[in-house]
Amino acid sequence: MRLTEQVLIFDADDTLWENNILFERVIADFLDWLEHPTLDRVEIRAVLDDIKAANAVSHGYGGKVFLRSLAECLERLYERPATTRERRRIDELAVTLIERRVELVPGVAETLADLGTRHELLLLTKGDQDEQRRKLDASRLAHHFSGIHIVPEKGVDAYLRLVERHDLTPLTTWMIGNSPKSDILPARQAGMNAVFIPHDHTWVLEQGELDPGDERVLRLGAFPELLDHF
């Protein structure tokens, strides 16, 4: 039985824990290491971003796909296959992504513990199943959620399936996240409310235009501010 009518659904990457900034650090190291006779860092980054976007569609998300993108970027720039030594170096650059400890966003653990005394909490995140589960286990946050859902993409269909599975009432359900594309816009299309908590390092492919006049989108500056509203 639910404590209140409101159900809160949380995104994970860059909402509960840091994610994209870790990829950005690896990209910076990759650009430092990669030398090209004619292209500068901005031009190389544009090539990499195109490859990452294509691979997200074809292969999904996560550290393994990211490593693939780095290798493909090198191969496209040099018009040859990556050598064993180059692939080893790419693996070394990205080892922190594959074997890292999870760094929680400030205030997340305390806020979830408080909210869980009043509301049902669900988790909806996208990405590689094993990788996301590992991060969730490392975060020690799983016990706060009555349902954990890891999906390949977070379009409106994913939200509608969640409504059906948990018998949710969209008008009293809130999706909380940092991504306009994956969190806010599809949740609103599914009839839910949304809480937008921007993150300075949200991936460019997760950006999107929000309606400033949408009264069912709450905008907050930091995760602990949820306690002022819920």
Rank of each mutant, 00 (worst) to 15 (best):
S179L: 07
Q129H: 15
L141F: 02
I27G: 07
G221K: 07
Q189H: 11
P37L: 09
I184M: 02
L97P: 00
K181N: 03
D49N: 15
R101K: 13
E18C: 02
T117D: 08
E99M: 10
L185Q: 02
G62C: 05
V108L: 00
V151I: 12
G177R: 06
R88A: 14
R161C: 10
L3S: 10
G116F: 05
A222E: 08
L104G: 05
D32G: 06
A56G: 13
L70D: 06
L227S: 06
L226T: 04
D14M: 03
H143I: 09
L34E: 01
R2N: 15
E103Y: 03
Q132I: 01
R165N: 14
E35F: 08
P106E: 05
A94R: 03
A138P: 01
R68F: 13
L136M: 09
V7I: 11
H149N: 04
Y78H: 15
V151C: 01
F230R: 02
I27L: 11
A94Y: 05
G62T: 09
W33A: 12
G208I: 08
L168H: 04
L115N: 07
S179V: 06
D214W: 06
I90H: 08
N19P: 03
V156S: 08
D128W: 09
I184P: 01
P81C: 05
V163Y: 03
C73A: 13
W174A: 04
L112Y: 01
L39F: 11
F223W: 00
A109V: 03
